[in-house]
């Protein structure tokens, strides 16, 4: 137990250095945390940077000889402060990000609070140490396990291990491997209609979004509510399944009684 406790300052020191570096590298992150709410907009950034300085000082004190008990107590106070701040964030400003150790827009979640509690626990353990970490011997090996636990609780690090792991799993077997089909999605038809000369010929008449759509043999039909000469009408597009050229799309404007009022392609051919 003694060597285990003695080893903790090494891990805590490195973690605080990482977290301090993250705050120095991008002080703008302060705006995304709950600090503006807690201390005011103008003081958020200076307070954020001040926390980074305190983190760095405690980290260096823990890492460098001599080993004083006060260092571990300072780490306990700091991590208790972090935990309290994160709980405050989650409750009072749920959309605020943690601003802990780097760029992350994620709001404070249970993982961030668990990580702060783990830091608090390791700092608590460190207060019982009687020697410096450099005399801890085999106790340092346990830190590897703890470091892995910290990494898994750090959303900032997900992209280095969690996302690649998921990507690898999907390469083995993609959940949507069988979704390809010959059916044309409606959105593809909609885009083809927008690109067509037929659409440009009637777009000023259209009053609605797609009202109805149906397939009939080689064609897909898409209808819109329209107004023509002050009257209610329907604009109907015929989109061929096979021919993908924009000019192959036809359109007609039909009134309520079913009379065809306007058909631009016919207009073109009859002059």
């Amino acid at each position: 137990m003694g060597t285990l406790a003695a080893a903790q300052p090494l891990l805590i020191g490195l973690l605080l250095l990482w977290s301090s570096y993250g705050k120095f590298a991008d002080p703008q992150q302060a705006d995304r945390t709950a600090l503006p709410r807690l201390v005011g907009d103008s003081r958020a950034k200076p307070v954020y940077q001040a926390v980074a300085v305190v983190e760095a000082l405690i980290a260096l004190a823990l890492l460098l000889p001599p080993s004083w008990a006060i260092e571990a107590f300072a780490a306990v106070a700091l991590s208790a402060g972090f935990t309290g701040f994160l709980v405050y964030s989650k409750v009072v400003v749920p959309e605020a990000s943690c601003g802990c150790a780097g760029k992350s827009a994620k709001p404070v979640g249970n993982r961030a609070i668990a990580r702060a509690l783990l830091l608090l626990a390791t700092a608590g353990l460190a207060t019982t140490a009687s020697t410096g970490w450099w005399s801890a011997g085999a106790g340092v090996l346990v830190l590897v396990v703890e470091a892995v636990a910290f990494a898994m609780l750090s959303a900032e690090l997900d992209r280095y291990w969690l996302l690649p792991l998921r990507r690898f799993r999907i390469r083995l077997s993609h959940p949507y491997a069988g979704t390809a089909s010959d059916d044309t999605p409606l959105v593809a038809t909609q885009r083809r209609v927008l690109l067509s000369p037929a659409y440009r010929a009637v777009d000023g008449l259209l009053r609605s979004d797609i009202h109805d759509y149906w397939d009939d043999e080689d064609w897909r039909f898409v209808s819109y509510a329209a107004r023509y000469d002050g009257r209610r009408a329907t604009a109907v597009f015929a989109v061929p399944h096979q021919d993908s050229t924009p000019a192959a799309i036809r359109v007609a404007v039909v009134d309520e009684e079913g009379l065809t009022l306007y058909r631009p392609t016919m207009l073109a051919t009859t002059g």
Partner: peptide, 12 residues
């Protein structure tokens, strides 16, 4: 509407 779009109806 299908017939109208395909040009199978007369234009009034």
């Amino acid at each position: 509407l299908s017939r109208a779009a395909l040009g199978a109806t007369g234009l009034v």
